[in-house]
Amino acid sequence: MIIKRAEKMGFCFGVSGAVDLCEEVIKKNNISKKKMYILGMLVHNKVVIKDMEDKGFEVLKEEDLLSHKIHLGENDLVIIRAHGTTKEIYKILDKSGCEIFDATCVFVKRIRNALIETENKGNKIIFVGDKNHPEVKGILSFGNNFEVIASFEEFLNFKVDSNVNYTLLTQTTFNKEVFFKIKDYILENYNNIEIFSKICGATYERQRAVEKLAKECEAIIIVGDKKSSNSKKLYEISKEINEKSYLIEEVDQLNVDWLKNISSVGITAGASTPEKIIIEIEKFIRGNFDDKHGL
């Protein structure tokens, strides 16, 4: 069996930066001995979170801060996750006196800043993304006048007021092909909607890579947390092209029956998936199927 990796897969620079920041904080905290917290899931991968907990971090729930179940002070340090957080949580952290390390992805920060700046100009925001995703909740908490849509079809049903100026913003992990459809429709039909796209380049590269892989291999394994937006989108894109596409979080979820009677399998991974999980899955496949043709 031929095992082929996607050309782009696994950790993006934002996730790598968040994990590296945690490692730096651990070294620094060997001296100060503060209690270490991560606000929510650092990244959407349970293996990464478990690793950080084993190294001394405690996952802090936003609702516990908001309900005052947890009271932070100067003897605590908090790392803000890669997805960012809400305006209210930032205020609580600032007032607490705790030491703050912000691992928010640069793309998330840019979209948040664009929202604030364009609203200050008087524009209404059209935000394309999943309203329940923590990244989107965090960004929108800085706004006042916005509508959230999740698909091209929802955009078609959105009533654009010709007397209002709009700015279109997107979730960083939004499907770029769907965004292009929305963008093209706007350019053809409206002149009062400015478009600000900061979909993560790594996200787009991974989406394009899985499209290519799904056409080249008989089966596709997508490795990623099932709560991960970008992993789910990789699965959706692959599944449209190749029916034998499977999303798994760890090697013990891999069903050997999926790979019977096929000669090639493609592997890709979400932006929060550690390399060690990918390697474990590759080893498992090689251990159960002949790899006479090599990689």
Score class of each variant (00 low, 15 high):
residue 2 I to F: 15
residue 13 F to Y: 12
residue 15 V to A: 06
residue 16 S to R: 13
residue 25 V to G: 02
residue 25 V to R: 02
residue 26 I to G: 02
residue 30 N to M: 14
residue 31 I to E: 14
residue 39 L to C: 08
residue 44 H to R: 12
residue 48 V to D: 00
residue 55 K to P: 04
residue 63 E to F: 03
residue 65 L to E: 05
residue 65 L to Y: 02
residue 66 L to I: 15
residue 69 K to T: 05
residue 78 V to S: 00
residue 89 I to F: 09
residue 89 I to Q: 03
residue 96 S to Q: 08
residue 97 G to E: 10
residue 98 C to D: 08
residue 107 F to K: 07
residue 109 K to D: 12
residue 113 N to K: 15
residue 115 L to D: 01
residue 118 T to H: 15
residue 119 E to T: 11
residue 122 G to H: 10
residue 127 F to T: 02
residue 130 D to E: 13
residue 133 H to K: 08
residue 134 P to I: 13
residue 134 P to H: 13
residue 136 V to W: 07
residue 143 G to S: 09
residue 148 V to I: 14
residue 149 I to M: 02
residue 152 F to C: 05
residue 155 F to V: 08
residue 164 V to S: 03
residue 168 L to R: 09
residue 169 L to P: 00
residue 173 T to F: 04
residue 180 F to M: 13
residue 184 D to G: 07
residue 194 E to C: 06
residue 195 I to S: 09
residue 199 I to W: 02
residue 205 E to T: 09
residue 211 E to Q: 15
residue 217 C to D: 05
residue 221 I to C: 07
residue 225 D to Y: 05
residue 227 K to P: 00
residue 228 S to G: 09
residue 239 K to L: 05
residue 240 E to A: 10
residue 243 E to D: 15
residue 246 Y to F: 15
residue 247 L to V: 09
residue 247 L to M: 09
residue 256 V to M: 13
residue 264 S to Q: 08
residue 266 G to H: 05
residue 268 T to Y: 03
residue 273 T to S: 12
residue 275 E to W: 03
residue 275 E to Q: 09
residue 276 K to L: 12
residue 277 I to V: 14
residue 277 I to G: 00
residue 277 I to A: 03
residue 285 I to Y: 11
residue 291 D to S: 14
residue 293 H to C: 07
